[in-house]
């Protein structure tokens, strides 16, 4: 199974802290994620301006190949204390967040009939 799986961090930054959060994410999270086999797809900042009084939303999308790639990154991060420590360190910069796992619509049938 070699479908592209998307790992999407949907993070609402604390008001005025989106730049700090993105910088922390890039320096403290992304290198290890790359080492776990995740490929950075894109970083979207919404709205496309830095807000001081309000929150920016960061949509950071990674890809892995197939469920095997998904489990590969998951098992590595789960038992790496640095990953949990990163999210704890980032918490003051975050108002709320979610993480989603998905695929292109064209891959849904193949992925869900295993």
């Amino acid at each position: 199974m070699d479908q592209t799986i998307f790992i999407i961090d949907d993070i609402v930054a604390a008001p005025g802290r989106a730049r700090d959060l993105l910088e922390l994410y890039r320096t403290r999270y992304a290198p290890a994620a790359l080492a776990r086999g995740m490929v950075l797809d894109r970083e979207i900042v919404a709205p496309p301006m830095w807000l001081d009084e309000l929150s920016n939303r960061l949509l950071i999308t990674w890809t892995v190949t197939g469920p095997g790639g998904w489990w590969g990154q998951a098992v590595q991060s789960r038992y790496d204390p640095a990953v949990e420590a990163f999210w704890a360190e980032a918490a003051p910069l975050i108002a709320s967040r979610a993480r989603y796992f998905g695929s292109a619509e064209a891959d849904v049938e193949a992925l869900s009939h295993v």
Partner: peptide, 13 residues
């Protein structure tokens, strides 16, 4: 892996 595992995943809220 895309639904249930988030309860087991320290990276998921």
């Amino acid at each position: 892996w895309a639904v249930i595992d988030r309860w087991f995943d320290p990276e998921c809220p």
